[in-house]
Amino acid sequence: MLEEILDGANAEARFVLGIDGLSRSGKSTMVSEIEEWLKGKGVTHQIFHIDDHIVERKARYDTGHEEWFEYYSLQWDRKRLREEFFMKLKEGCMDVRLPFYDGELDTVTERQVQLSDKGIIIVEGVFLQREEWRDAFDGILFLDCSRERRLLRESEETQLKLEKFRNRYWKAEEYYLDTVQPMKRADWVIPT
Rank of each mutant, 00 (worst) to 15 (best):
L160C: 10
M183D: 04
D187H: 13
E66F: 07
G119A: 00
V55A: 05
G125S: 05
S116I: 05
L17F: 00
L162K: 15
L160G: 14
S32F: 10
I34H: 02
A13S: 13
E173K: 08
K58G: 03
D135F: 10
P191R: 13
I34R: 04
H49G: 09
T179C: 06
I50T: 12
A11E: 15
D102R: 06
P191T: 10
G8V: 08
Q159M: 09
S155R: 14
R24D: 12
S146R: 12
C145F: 11
Q112L: 10
L105T: 13
E66W: 03
S23V: 07
D7E: 14
V16Q: 05
S23Q: 07
R149L: 13
G119F: 02
G18E: 06
K164Q: 12
H65K: 15
G26R: 02
D95C: 09
C93D: 15
V126W: 01
R166I: 06
L128A: 04
Y101P: 04
Y61S: 06
I122R: 01
S32A: 14
Q46R: 09
E173F: 09
L89A: 01
D138G: 08
D135L: 08
E12M: 08
L98V: 02
D178Q: 15
R168F: 03
W188E: 07
S146A: 15
W170Q: 09
E110G: 09
I190S: 11
N10T: 10
W68V: 08
G92S: 09
K41V: 06
H49S: 13
D102K: 12
G119C: 00
D138L: 02
Y61G: 01
P191Y: 11
A9E: 08
R14F: 09
A172T: 02
L81N: 01
L22G: 08
D135E: 15
G18L: 00
E66Q: 13
G21N: 03
S155Y: 06
K90H: 09
F165Y: 13
L162H: 13
A9P: 09
R24S: 12
F85E: 01
E35T: 14
W37E: 14
A172K: 04
K171M: 13
L115D: 03
E84I: 01
V180N: 04
R111G: 02
I121S: 01
I34W: 03
Y169H: 05
G8W: 02
P99Q: 03
I120V: 11
F85C: 08
K171H: 10
I47E: 00
L115C: 05
L6E: 02
C93T: 10
Y72H: 13
V113T: 09
A172H: 07
H65S: 14
W188L: 15
D106E: 09
E66Y: 11
F127I: 04
P99K: 07
S146D: 12
E4G: 07
R14T: 00
H45F: 07
G40N: 08
E154N: 15
L151F: 15
E12L: 11
G139L: 03
D117V: 10
I5P: 05
E33T: 02
L6R: 05
